[in-house]
């Protein structure tokens, strides 16, 4: 199963240079006591340009680690990362990364946080602020510009983070559980907002979530990771649902249910197998 998925991804990848391709990536951490923890084992994954790919996996399996590798923040122990056909050394400047944990600059106001991406690239401050303000309006925070991050709710902070990343107009978007701490209703609103923003210029997206329903509703492809250690990709599904989608409505579609059941069956057994492996080894 896993090999089949990898082969399929490999075949697609060779046809066109993918926006992003991880090849046989292995990630090992050296622990304090000198032992080595093998977090991710020989994983390959590619994201085509304009494609929305979501990784689903149990907590601690290595999703964040994989995104860090894709962002160039962390070097894999072996394997390679290719961005639009060129091997990645150092930071992945073509991508925007929405982090799982708090990453806004607490000493900057909301509008400064969003404008900074342009300012450091040399855009005049007034113009940067103007564009930041427009983007803030897009994420529904038009009147929040002068606030500081600690004066916002978790969901509002995530939206500021999204605006901060989007203002640089990156070709690739890496998103690590951006809706993690939010309630179900807000997740739907944020999901629709994200799809709305994404549909404007279809960036390549690598999205991470725990929530299988959310994954199917948002993506073109859903990738399942096994539990760690030595996590691998255990399945790769295309989502045949039409776009544009509404997160709430798409969940009523029979095709959605069909796919959900199919993925869940594999996910369940694979995850159980993953746990069994952990116990055995």
């Amino acid at each position: 199963m896993a090999d089949g998925a990898t082969a399929e991804a490999g075949a697609r990848e060779s046809a066109v240079a993918a926006a992003m391709a991880l090849r046989d990536v292995t990630i090992a951490f050296r622990l304090g006591d000198g032992s080595v923890y093998n977090a991710v084992d020989r994983t390959s994954l590619s994201v085509a340009d304009g494609e929305f790919v979501t990784i689903v996996g149990p907590t601690g399996c290595g999703k964040t680690t994989l995104l860090n590798v894709a962002a160039g923040l962390f070097r894999p122990s072996s394997g390679s990362v290719n961005i639009f056909g060129a091997e990645l050394f150092g930071l992945n400047r073509q991508s925007g990364y929405l982090f799982q944990s708090e990453a806004l600059f607490p000493w900057k106001t909301v509008i400064e946080n969003v404008a900074i991406g342009l300012e450091i690239a040399g855009t005049a401050r007034s113009e940067a602020c103007e564009r930041a303000q427009k983007l803030l309006a897009r994420v529904g925070l038009a009147s929040f510009g002068p606030r500081y991050p600690h004066m916002l709710s978790g969901g509002q902070r995530k939206r500021v983070g999204l605006a901060q990343v989007l203002i640089r107009d990156p070709k690739i978007l890496l998103m690590d559980e951006p809706f993690g701490p939010l309630d179900a209703q807000t997740r739907q609103i944020m999901g629709n907002l994200l799809l709305d923003l994404w549909s404007a210029d279809r960036k390549a997206v690598l999205f991470v979530t725990h929530d299988l329903e959310e994954a199917i509703a948002l993506s073109d492809r859903v990738v399942i990771m096994s539990a760690g250690p030595a996590a691998r990709i255990m399945g790769d599904w295309r989502v045949p649902l039409v776009r544009p989608r509404d997160i709430a409505e798409i969940k009523l579609d029979p095709a959605f249910h069909e796919l959900h059941r199919e993925i869940w069956q594999t996910l369940k057994s694979e995850v159980l197998k993953g746990y069994a492996q952990t116990d055995g080894g």
Binding site: G96, Y97, F99, E102, A103, L104
Partner: peptide, 15 residues
Amino acid sequence: VSPTVLANARMLGMN
């Protein structure tokens, strides 16, 4: 400085 904030700053393109 929070490592995440630092990583974010780098990803946003700061030298």
